[in-house]
């Protein structure tokens, strides 16, 4: 846990506020921009993180999962609101991103659902989130934790 906080502090120092560090790892040509999340109340409630994933390569990339020391069950979920105004959430499955395209994880749509938190999400800290792609590629990003009432990465 201490290690996570240390990394978080370091990343916070490096990023100087709301911006996340686009990190590249493995052979995936994908970058993560404007990552942010909301603080949690304790550890019982699931958290959510948002970001834009851009395919900078010439080949399609397919996001298949997430991994983070913060949560035991991180998954890409999608909120849908039907014609009657009822919202529901479900696992989004694989997400293919065409070359040059990007996918936005934003409130009310796709989001990284962080289930089974291992520690509370504290405003001002960050946590590492690894995006897992088909063929074993990975991209890890430090996600800043904003206030519970944050509406976007600039809040």
């Amino acid at each position: 846990m201490k290690k996570i906080i240390m990394t978080g502090t370091l990343a916070a120092l490096l990023t100087f506020g709301g911006l996340s560090v686009p990190a590249l790892a493995g052979p995936v040509d994908a970058v993560v921009e404007s990552a942010w999340s909301r603080a949690s109340i304790g550890m019982n409630r699931p958290g959510a993180a948002y970001m834009t994933i851009r395919n900078t390569g010439d080949e399609p990339v397919t996001l298949i999962g997430l991994s983070t020391p913060l949560a035991m069950m991180p998954e890409i979920h999608e909120t849908k609101t039907n014609a009657e105004g009822v919202s529901s959430m479900s696992a989004a499955g694989e997400i293919a991103i065409a070359p040059g395209e990007s996918v936005a994880l934003e409130p009310g749509g796709l989001h990284a659902m962080l289930m089974r938190l291992q520690q509370p999400m504290t405003e001002g800290e960050t946590f590492p989130l690894t995006l897992l792609f088909v063929d074993g590629g990975e991209v890890t990003v430090e996600v800043p934790i904003l206030g519970i009432a944050a509406r976007g990465p600039e809040d």
């Binding site: 909120t79 009310g108 659902m113």
Partner: peptide
């Protein structure tokens, strides 16, 4: 509901705005 990670905090922030 307060265990709602996406829609509810978003709507409550919208309402606050």
């Amino acid at each position: 509901f307060t265990y709602c990670p996406d829609v509810c905090p978003t709507t409550l922030s919208d309402i606050s705005g």
